[in-house]
Write a protein that binds this DNA or RNA. Structure first.
Lengths: 211, 211, 211, 211
DNA sequence: TATGAATGAGATTTCATTCAT
DNA sequence: AATGAATGAAATCTCATTCAT
């Protein structure tokens, strides 16, 4: 019992640190994030971060890994029981849209990582990404075998899906600012799951279908 | 005569600073960039940067404005003489692909800006972006009037075009690393102008056409 | 029985802590030593050190006292039954050489202490040193009374004996490194008991004899 | 003129930093020294140390090198014009005694370095030490050729000379404290050049002479 | 008796910025 | 127009120590 209680606390501390790290790294990027602020938001002493996780870069890697591996897992689970390749693609899109809606830090985190060419991605994360691409490869191959899909580069597909969803999501503030400052008439809706995901789904299915 | 020579040198100094700034900000982001490194890459003393341009933020804004305003200008010029909305869209896509191919720092710079919600975008840059969206709005409206396009949110279109091109471009190192580390079989081609831009063009035209 | 067993274990824990402390303080000095590392080498939790011994300074003092008092005791015992002043000096030299050979941490520990002027030496240690000097004083006085020794400052004698033995001992790595890096041709033997102690003995007896 | 003035200031800054570093490292050892205190004693901002010299370890190495290379140089110069091997040895002893008297930080610095086995000595310093040992090797070889000296290990000779002088010097506070605390009757004189160096000279010449 | 977790205080190092020249 | 030197402020990281269990 004692150990359970202790482990519970430890677990809690570590995950509140990771949560805070996700937030701050997403908002400011690696270089702009301050360990001090992460500690403050996690409600722990700065040294506690070093005790539980390690230096700033380890913290960053843990945060990213956390997010990406969960995303991959959800996608994998979601597609296990689906029938047609089309349905599987749809599930992937909707799953990712939901993840991004529910966790507002996924988008910026992944985007920044992409922007720096994944130069600092730890192997674990890279392998998660490869896992997702692997999923897509399986789906497109099955689609081609069944005569439903044209030939498509799974990496391009990955970028299309993940990229567009993330970009839509993270561009929300920009869209709002455009409206306010410039009077532009654009959608200022934040949610990507729902109509936006539907558009993207149609777009993607259009893109891969045999014509 | 003296003054002209001096101005010439001044001009040179300033633009080598801006070039270095683009590079470093693109690679590291605002927070990760070091004024020291920008000075080193520009081949000038750090104080010279302050003399010519100002503080770090001004330098960042100058670098980004530089890039975005040129992009907008090229798009505008390219579409002025084109006929159909379809052709105009195609020009925009190809222009941007070319810009991104020729200036490898545009992608990361813009991506990071988007990732932080454009929180720090100076008004000048915002208005350039609005200008581009305005271009797209004009094109889609014309397309609808002519019964060629379905209704489409110009901001979504902007994201589709700009986002996919940039994402493809910046993901080159990641794709390469995937290949090396994980044996994935993906396209490791860097250039986006050409076949990739063609794919994106088809995709976009598919997306906007009336079905 | 239980208590004895417990005491036995306690004893063990405490002495493994002291052993580790000697090691680390000898290698790194007081300022360079880390309580963390001492705990690791002792195979106990850091807090256990505080429970058994106290803070870093107490630990340091315990470690040094441990070493010096044992040295003094051995010297005293060794000279109690010897006859001539010369023999007593010889015993002191050989005893110290043996102590230093058997406990490689004595040298560095004492050397560092001397280097900082004994500023932090606890009274107990100082009194042990005084005891050793007292031994030497007794021997030189007896030697003078018997017309065998010239007048010699016992502190200088102490430094000669202790200093040279320690210096020879601790310079072993430096000698080795000189050989490897610079091709110097020097003795790289570690042991000081034996021929080296013999040389020092001759030197010291030469130094104190009436000429 | 401008440049000279500037260089003068730079030179001054750097050497006041090195002077302060010698002091503090000598008093506290590497681990116990604080960069803050070195900056304070040098009368400069902490960052200035990093600007001119680098991190703490570089600073330490610069300080040691500074001291040891000067010592070597003085010994070399002093023995160039002396005649007999005996005279040369005497010069070396007196030179070193003088150096140690005039620069109170040499002793502790070198002693601590020896205590940690020279583990962190930069090559430059090691080569200075080798130079000194080389000097001694030359002298003893000449002495043997002339039938004046017995065979003696130059490294042992180095330790005898350097070690005893340093030990006498740095033990001054300990001696004083012994007197005060324990009523011991020992020499509390600080200077090593003079009578003490004379004793050491006699001792050393005794040690190397053919008997 | 022993420990994992946590932390306050302080250490080293970095960096944007200024200034005299 | 340009720079080397210098720095204040703040960043990252460390570490001796304590506490609840």
């Amino acid at each position: 019992m004692k150990n359970l209680a202790r482990d519970g606390r430890t677990q809690e501390t570590a995950s509140s640190i990771l949560r805070a790290a996700r937030e701050v790294f997403a908002e400011k990027g690696f270089g702009g994030a301050r360990v001090d602020e992460i500690a403050r938001r996690a409600g722990v002493n700065k040294a506690t971060i070093y005790y539980h996780i390690g230096d700033k870069r380890s913290l960053y890697e843990a945060a990213i890994h956390n997010v990406v591996s969960r995303t991959r897992q959800l996608m994998q689970e979601g597609t296990e029981h689906e029938g047609s390749p089309k349905d599987k693609l749809a599930v992937i899109i909707r799953t990712f849209a939901k993840v991004v809606d529910e966790n507002p830090h996924v988008g910026p985190l992944m985007l920044r990582e992409i922007a720096s060419g994944g130069k600092h991605l730890p192997a674990a994360v890279l392998s998660d990404i490869a896992g997702i691409i692997g999923l897509l490869t399986g789906i497109t191959e099955e689609g081609r075998r069944l005569g439903q899909f044209s030939e498509i580069n799974p990496f391009l597909l990955y970028i299309m899906i993940v990229g567009m969803i993330i970009l839509f999501k993270v561009s929300a503030p920009l869209r709002k600012r455009s409206v306010e400052t410039l009077g532009a008439v654009v959608d200022t809706n934040d949610a990507v799951a729902g109509p936006v995901a539907d558009s993207i789904e149609r777009l993607v299915l259009n893109a891969v279908r045999l014509n």
